[in-house]
Amino acid sequence: MAHDHDHEHDHDGGHPAAPMVAEVTDFEILEIAVRELAIEKGLFTVDEHRKFTEWAESIGPASGSRLVAKAWTDPAFKARVLADATKASLEVGIDWSQPTGFGTPSDYTEFRVLEDTPTLHHVIVCTLCSCYPRPMLGHSPYWYRSPNYRRRIVRWPRQVLAEFGLILPPEIEIRVEDSNQKCRFMVLPLRPAGTEGWTEQQLAEIVTRDCMIGVALPRADRKADDVRPVHAALRPVPHEEAGR
């Protein structure tokens, strides 16, 4: 049967062709229906939905960058991070108990930071769904949630990292952290050469999201993740924060 959906985003064979998209998609309709019914039935209020939305739009990887930069410059803080990362997060302004008082339902409050060394490199994944330290790093990138990344990173980590442009010698142990229950993880990478004497703020600028997932290493000459193709939204979130 001929494909009748030659959408503009149909490309390169890595993904299925985008379907024909109606004016308002079926998922938009279903989402509105569920939200309205939940509010009508008193399961939650419009205010609660708004409060959580505001929290969801406030998070991003900059918090993690600050944590890494501070850990690089303050050994006592680093020790506190490794001992109790949830508590130490407060020192960079992240309260894992927000926005509900007991944390988010999906992220829990069991945060752990994985420290890289000259002989050990960490990379995180959630093979079973998409567990990610949202309060500290914001929402996960879509590729992190993709079956492809989840299938391969646990078994062929060096090949997958190479596709991200990160090639490590076999003497360095690669440790994959498959986040499958209630702990949430991020990577504390090594401070790169060429950053001697830098301020915390200067250092934070080179700690990109990918460095804290473990698919890239910070470099003194790079302040953004490598450029990758971006799939644009049809009806994006208005005023989405930069740096996502």
């Binding site: 998609t25 998922f27 938009e28 509105i32 590729w143 492809n148 193709p229 939204a233 994006p236 208005p238």
Partner: peptide, 14 residues
């Protein structure tokens, strides 16, 4: 795979 980024739809955030 091409590990592309995806912009979020409003209905996805909702």
């Amino acid at each position: 795979s091409v590990f592309e980024e995806k912009e979020e739809e409003l209905w996805e955030l909702n």
